Amino acid sequence: MSNTALLERPTAAPARHLRAVPAPVETVAPQRPAEERALPAGTAPRGFALYVGIDEAKVAASGVSLGVLVDALRRTLADLAPSAETYATVALAPVGSGGRDVDVVRLALHEPSAIARTKAEELEDEDRAPGGVAVDISRKRVLIDGESAAFTFKEFELLQYLVLREGRTIERTELVSSLWQGATDDEAPGERTIDVHVRRLRAKLGRYEDIVRTVRGVGYRFDRHADVSIRYGHGTPSPDRF
């Protein structure tokens, strides 16, 4: 999800204003209002969160942008409840991460029940101790056949960099500039030193060493592999955008 694209508002498409619609006729027994339901002692409702799951491609197909949707919702809310205060942020997730958009949003924005479910799933995964390689992005570790591998920080960074750019060949120069940012010329490794890091990484991967492919004369790449699972954890911090 491009940060730049999130800031753009198309000039061709006019801003749209959402309209309140009448409530449908109740066909089942209506629920009690939230304020009448049992609440934890000492608490009171102070607002609500509405999670909207839609990526940039889907919203663009509707002729608008994420920013336009946020503006429309804010204007509608201002009409219905002028005293309401609003805050909006964008949910970021790794490119290619699966699942329903709204579930990805809830997890990226640290919605409590979504995080609780994810933690339970992680515990189940660990209990099963699956075979293959599990790259745990959130905990900065690699499990090989259910056992934690003794990767150095830089070895993990190297594997993570390739895994998160699945299907793209990464040149050695890019690996040096990205993984050794801020290093002086004396501190940054040469391109051939990257080959040494990759050899050590493959040695620790053991029988799964071929998940890191060499592209002769260019660099390295990671392709989707049946023996590899990726755990993204509890979401990427989401910056203010609106």
Rank of each mutant, 00 (worst) to 15 (best):
D103W: 01
S62G: 10
P24F: 05
E36S: 14
L158K: 00
G146H: 03
A49I: 11
L123S: 08
T173C: 00
D227W: 04
G42E: 08
D223M: 07
E35K: 12
L159D: 02
D195K: 00
L50T: 12
F153T: 11
F242G: 13
V105P: 12
L73I: 08
R141W: 09
R19D: 03
R9I: 00
E111A: 09
V70S: 12
L69F: 12
A38W: 09
L50Q: 13
G182F: 12
V21L: 14
H197K: 03
V52K: 07
R46D: 12
R32S: 15
L201T: 05
I194S: 07
R74H: 11
R221G: 03
E124N: 02
F242M: 10
I115P: 02
Q181L: 10
L164Y: 01
R165D: 08
S97N: 07
W180T: 00
T193L: 03
V64S: 13
G146W: 04
T11R: 09
L39W: 02
R231H: 11
R165G: 09
A120T: 14
A108V: 02
E171N: 04
E85I: 07
A114F: 12
L162H: 08
D136C: 09
V90A: 15
E166Y: 06
R19P: 05
E111M: 06
G233H: 03
V25H: 05
D227S: 08
V212I: 12
G206W: 06
A23D: 15
T152N: 07
G146E: 03
S148L: 08
A116E: 11
V68D: 14
D55L: 10
L18T: 04
